[in-house]
Amino acid sequence: MTALHGGRLGTWIKLPALESVQIVAHAAFDFVVIDQEHAPLDLRTVYELVTVAQALGVPPLVRVADGAPSGIQRLLDAGAAGVLIPHIDTVEQARAAAAAVRFPPAGRRGAGGTSRAGRWGLLSREEYLATSDSALCVPQIESRQAVGNAAAIAAVEGVDALFVGAADLGLDIGAAPSAPEVSELCGTALDAAHAAGIPCGAATATPQGAAALLAQGFDFVVVGNDTSMLAEAATATVHAIRGDGGPR
């Protein structure tokens, strides 16, 4: 779990471009989260992004589109360091997510030792099965119900961290992500994770926001994303030259 401890900084990867991973790796981000929930990334593209991230020493997590065990299994067999699973509201959903990440008897993941995670069959069965011990299962807490169940979700065997989604929490309660009510809910989830002895993360769009989250006690922060960084740099370049670089 070292990838998610000690004030680690990551960023979302949304573009189907290997260069995105290379650029953020060279920028010294601690990890990346490849985003299948809000970006049109297919399995083959994610496989390639994971491979490049690992080659550069940057742990690649994947935010899956949903908690389907078949999708989680294929991503872990592709070599992903772990998965973020959106909209985990109940203990039962958290148990199902953890089971999809772990091999029996701890879970229900199927064996695929000839995959990339098993070095295409070169690892022994024992070595391949041991890879699930280090795979990260990270439920996303994104509703009032989820916050209410956060302590129980964090205590589920096989859950390695929580990730708080302030944007969806705000949607759930009808408030802006920066509203005091949302901040209070995020703090409750953070406290629940720490009480269970696991790290808790959150996301923000800005460096200032990341610093504030780390100061609040969050263990890892996902800041910005490749698409927005490109958009902001492009807009700033045009504005600096012509003074009219606003979005079209």
Rank of each mutant, 00 (worst) to 15 (best):
S134D: 15
S134Y: 14
A135L: 01
A135H: 03
A135N: 06
A135Q: 09
L136M: 05
P139S: 09
Q140L: 13
Q140P: 10
I141H: 07
I141S: 02
E142Y: 04
E142F: 01
S143T: 10
Q145Y: 13
Q145D: 14
Q145P: 12
A146I: 09
A146K: 05
A146G: 06
A146S: 05
V147D: 10
V147T: 06
V147P: 03
G148R: 08
G148H: 04
G148Y: 01
G148S: 07
N149W: 04
A150P: 00
A151Y: 11
A151N: 05
A151P: 04
A151I: 06
A152C: 11
A152E: 09
I153K: 02
I153E: 02
I153T: 01
A154I: 02
A155T: 02
V156A: 01
V156D: 01
E157D: 15
E157Y: 13
G158V: 02
G158D: 07
V159K: 02
D160Y: 04
D160T: 02
A161C: 05
A161E: 01
L162W: 03
L162K: 05
F163L: 10
V164C: 06
V164T: 04
G165F: 07
A166E: 13
A166Q: 12
A167S: 12
D168K: 06
L169I: 14
L169K: 02
L169C: 05
G170D: 13
G170Q: 06
G170M: 03
L171C: 09
L171Q: 13
D172C: 09
D172N: 10
D172M: 08
D172V: 06
A175Y: 10
A175R: 14
A176Q: 11
A176V: 12
A176T: 12
P177C: 02
P177R: 07
S178W: 11
S178E: 15
A179V: 12
A179R: 08
P180M: 08
P180N: 15
E181F: 11
V182F: 03
V182A: 05
V182E: 00
V182M: 15
S183G: 12
S183V: 14
S183C: 14
E184W: 11
L185D: 14
G187R: 00
G187P: 06
G187Y: 11
A189M: 08
A189V: 02
L190A: 07
A192E: 09
A193Y: 04
A193L: 05
H194S: 07
H194K: 07
A195D: 07
P199S: 06
P199R: 01
P199I: 00
C200H: 01
G201W: 01
T204K: 07
A205W: 11
A205C: 13
A205D: 13
T206Y: 12
P207T: 13
Q208Y: 12
Q208C: 15
Q208G: 15
